[in-house]
Deep mutational scan, measured.
Amino acid sequence: ATNIVGKVKWYNSTKNAGFIEQDNGGKDVFVHKSAVDAAGLHSLEEGQDVIFDLEEKQGKAYAVNLRIK
């Protein structure tokens, strides 16, 4: 899926990971530091509006192509 709108639920820069809550009510999506880095960002803030694509690896959904809304 592409161009999904959501809000950062939480992001821990020590653990280099967090979750994004989908505005469409879907399951929360894992976001890794690699996606944050690829977006040219240093970190994510709780409640921040984002747009992202979903990629599945080994049955788990990940946020990729992250951008700030």
Rank of each mutant, 00 (worst) to 15 (best):
I68H: 05
Q48M: 14
I51E: 07
K60Y: 11
L54G: 00
R67D: 03
A39S: 11
E56R: 12
A1E: 09
R67W: 04
Q22A: 09
K57T: 10
Q48C: 09
S13H: 12
G25N: 09
N24S: 10
G18N: 01
I68P: 08
Q22T: 13
V29F: 05
N16Q: 13
K57S: 11
K60M: 11
L41H: 05
L66D: 01
S43P: 09
T2S: 10
V5H: 15
N16D: 07
Y11W: 13
L66R: 00
S13G: 10
L44D: 01
L44H: 01
D53S: 03
L44W: 02
L44V: 03
E56L: 13
D53Y: 02
E21F: 10
H42G: 11
K9A: 03
A63W: 01
N16K: 15
T14R: 14
V29S: 02
E21D: 05
D28H: 09
Q48R: 06
K7C: 06
V5R: 14
R67Y: 05
N65M: 03
V50N: 00
I4P: 01
V8Y: 03
G25R: 07
L44P: 01
D23C: 15
I4E: 03
K7P: 01
N24A: 10
H42N: 12
K57N: 10
N24T: 09
K33N: 05
G6L: 02
A39K: 02
H42F: 12
F19T: 06
D23L: 15
K15N: 08
L54N: 01
D49I: 15
S43A: 11
K27S: 10
Q22C: 14
A39V: 05
H32Q: 08
F19G: 03
V29Q: 01
V31Q: 00
S43T: 14
I20Y: 00
E46V: 15
G26W: 07
Y11T: 06
G26Y: 08
D37I: 15
S34G: 08
K60H: 10
Q58Y: 14
Q22E: 04
G59C: 07
H42R: 12
W10G: 03
F52H: 00
A61M: 14
I68W: 06
K69A: 12
V64Q: 04
S13Y: 10
S34C: 11
R67K: 09
G25F: 07
A39E: 02
A61G: 08
A17M: 15
D23Y: 15
T2I: 13
V8F: 08
G59S: 06
I20K: 00
D53H: 03
Y11A: 03
K15L: 15
L41S: 03
D23V: 15
G40F: 06
N12Y: 07
N12Q: 07
K15E: 08
N24H: 10
G59H: 06
N12E: 06
T14E: 12
E46A: 15
N12R: 08
V5T: 15
F30A: 05
S43H: 12
G47L: 03
I4K: 09
I68N: 05
G26S: 09
A38K: 11
L66H: 01
G59M: 04
K7F: 06
G47C: 07
F52R: 00
S13V: 13
D28E: 07
A1L: 12
R67E: 04
N12M: 08
Q22I: 13
K9Y: 04
A61W: 15
V8N: 01
F52I: 03
L54E: 02
V31H: 00
A1R: 14
G6P: 00
V36E: 00
A63V: 06
G25T: 07
Q22S: 09
G47W: 04
Q58C: 14
L66K: 00
T14Q: 13
K60D: 05
G6K: 00
K69F: 14
T14L: 13
K57F: 13
S43M: 11
V29T: 04
E45W: 15
E56I: 15
Q48W: 14
K9L: 06
L54D: 00
F30L: 06
I68A: 07
F52A: 02
F19C: 12
G59I: 02
K69Y: 13
L66W: 00
Y11S: 03
G40Q: 07
V5Q: 13
R67I: 07
G47M: 04
S13D: 10
A63Q: 01
A61I: 15
I20M: 03
V5P: 13
E45C: 14
A61F: 15
H32E: 08
Y62P: 01
S34P: 04
R67P: 02
S43G: 13
K57I: 11
A38N: 08
G18A: 03
A1S: 11
I20A: 01
A35M: 06
L54K: 07
E21H: 10
D28R: 09
K27Q: 11
K27W: 08
F30T: 03
E46N: 12
N12A: 07
A38T: 07
K69T: 12
N24K: 10
K27T: 09
G40C: 09
D23P: 14
A17L: 14
N16L: 09
L41G: 03
S13E: 11
A39C: 04
N3C: 09
F30D: 02
H32Y: 07
L66S: 00
F30K: 04
K27I: 10
E55T: 09
Y62D: 02
V36F: 05
A61E: 11
E55K: 11
D49E: 15
D49Q: 14
K15A: 10
D37E: 14
L44C: 03
V50K: 00
A38R: 10
A17S: 14
D53V: 03
E55N: 08
E46P: 15
I51K: 04
V8D: 01
Y62E: 05
T2W: 12
G26D: 09
Q22N: 07
V31P: 01
D28I: 11
S34E: 08
D53E: 04
V8Q: 00
V50M: 05
F19P: 00
L44Y: 00
Y11R: 02
K60G: 06
A39N: 02
G47A: 05
I4Y: 07
K57Y: 13
V31N: 00
A1Y: 13
V31R: 00
V31D: 00
A38H: 08
V5M: 13
E55Q: 11
V29P: 01
V31T: 02
I51H: 04
D53I: 03
D23H: 14
D49S: 14
H42P: 12
A35I: 07
K27F: 09
I20R: 00
D37V: 15
A35P: 01
A61L: 14
Y11P: 01
Y62H: 08
N12K: 08
K57R: 13
E45R: 14
H32A: 08
F52P: 00
K15V: 11
G18R: 01
Q22F: 11
N65P: 00
E21M: 14
G26P: 05
I51V: 11
K27L: 09
G59T: 04
A39D: 01
D49K: 14
V5E: 11
K27A: 12
G18E: 00
K9E: 00
G25E: 06
D49L: 15
A39G: 05
G59Q: 05
K27M: 10
K15D: 07
D28P: 10
H32I: 06
E21V: 13
A38V: 07
K15G: 07
V50H: 00
D23E: 14
D37S: 12
W10A: 04
V31G: 01
F52D: 00
K60C: 12
D28N: 09
G59N: 08
H32D: 10
G59E: 05
K7A: 04
H32G: 10
F52K: 00
E21P: 01
G40P: 02
N3H: 08
W10I: 05
I51Y: 07
T14P: 06
A35W: 04
E46G: 11
G25H: 07
E21N: 08
V29M: 02
E56A: 08
L66Y: 00
V5C: 14
V29E: 00
E56T: 13
V5W: 11
D23K: 15
K33R: 11
I4L: 15
V5Y: 13
A1N: 12
G47V: 02
K7T: 08
I20P: 00
E45V: 14
D37M: 14
E45T: 13
G6R: 00
L66M: 03
L41Y: 09
N65K: 06
G6I: 03
N24V: 08
Q22L: 13
K7S: 06
L66P: 01
A63E: 01
D23W: 13
A63M: 02
S43Y: 12
A38S: 08
V50D: 00
D53M: 03
A35S: 09
E56C: 14
N24E: 08
V8S: 00
K33D: 02
I4V: 11
Y62A: 05
L44S: 01
F52M: 02
G40V: 03
E55Y: 14
A1I: 12
A61P: 08
L54V: 13
Y62L: 05
K57E: 07
G47R: 05
V29Y: 06
E56H: 13
W10P: 00
Y62V: 06
D28F: 10
E46M: 14
K7L: 03
K60L: 11
K27C: 10
N3D: 11
V31I: 09
I4N: 06
E21Y: 11
E55I: 14
K33E: 04
G26C: 09
E45K: 14
L41Q: 04
I51W: 08
V50L: 11
F52V: 02
K9M: 04
D53W: 04
E55D: 07
G6S: 01
E55A: 11
V50A: 02
E45G: 08
S34N: 10
H32N: 10
N12D: 12
V36T: 03
Y11Q: 02
V5L: 13
D37F: 14
G6N: 01
G47E: 03
K27V: 11
L44K: 00
N3V: 04
N65H: 08
E46S: 15
